[in-house]
Design a protein around this nucleic acid. Sequence first.
DNA 1: ACCTGAACACCGTTCAAGT
DNA 2: ACCTGAACACCGTTCAAGT
Lengths: 208, 208
Amino acid sequence: MSITRGHAVTAALSREGIVDAALGLVDRHGLAGLSMRRLGRELGVDPMAVYRHLPDKAALLDGIVDALHAEMDLDSPAGAASWRQELATYAGRVREVLHRHPRAVGVFVTRAGSVDTGNARLADRLAAAGFAARTGSWMVECVRSLTVGLVVAEVVGAAGSGADDDERFRFGLTALLDGFERAGTQAALARPSPRSPSAPRTRPTARR
Amino acid sequence: MSITRGHAVTAALSREGIVDAALGLVDRHGLAGLSMRRLGRELGVDPMAVYRHLPDKAALLDGIVDALHAEMDLDSPAGAASWRQELATYAGRVREVLHRHPRAVGVFVTRAGSVDTGNARLADRLAAAGFAARTGSWMVECVRSLTVGLVVAEVVGAAGSGADDDERFRFGLTALLDGFERAGTQAALARPSPRSPSAPRTRPTARR
DNA sequence: ACCTGAACACCGTTCAAGT
DNA sequence: ACCTGAACACCGTTCAAGT
């Protein structure tokens, strides 16, 4: 747990070291620049050595997605004062990590990975804030989809400068969160009283 | 213009016929099942014949994205009664086409393609409904990102049945559109009076 | 002049041959 | 028993050789 972190250049391959190196390769050379053979060269080992730790290139790509999810740190408590902030923190973490690995966004978006654990944790906290279970997970999934979708648009198109992109993201996220509080959405709400201390005040109220 | 439509199996290659065949290959065998050589075989021509109509595999993939955009028919007037309906129609068209080509979603999301024409057209209509130009294009881009992001989640995860996916999509889109009408978003609004007959009544009103 | 298809430099993956 | 690396069946793309 102490040695394999960082750059495992010489011997002693580990799944984690391999995946780290693979992500580095994607960061520097793009997805097309990642091949099993090149990865072996990068690690200074036999091109086929990787296959002893990972069955497939598919598994390697899944590993990259898992590593990105780990870097997003979605499980750690946001310590947010409201469900709005909770979701905003979640979106911010996703966006920040994707911005750090723009050339890996394509892989991230294409593969399932371990999305579910972090999502479920947050959905639970939303349930504690008074949302029906289904509504809570929808909210998480929508926030996630909007966030990822916007980053994809940034990465794929040559469009906006960074500042414009930030502003657009804040605009969209605000609108979506506002919408969660509003009428059309209320129908999906169930439990009437908040249960958790982490979301005390901002439980949605019917407005129409 | 009459012969090359449909399936151009034998001679007389055209860029359009090639792209159609490529999309068909992706639909049936997935993105990994598309190769320049296999495409030639599919079309019954020399494997290298494609290169006379398209410079690259990259160009072929761009062609596929363009074909999907064309199928979405985003330029045609929605004839919608409100800007809400206008955006909902847009999102519905995007979603419908992506559902028809689930295995092509990965390509679609990864490449820029000719997004801008359809988006700009719609953004103009939103401007006519009273939104500032920047706000209008943000709205389109957010709706698009949410829609595409949700479809990606559907395709990539084994998650919901079709009905659940539809419900989640409607939930998210409704929330986003509701949010566009609401306070935090109002700051970005500019022109106060509607100009177009196609969006007569539902101009957003401040609510806080 | 045009088109073909052999050839080049790569892939992911398997598996026989060595240690 | 383990690991290596040759070999297989593919790639995208180029370009000399044919017509």
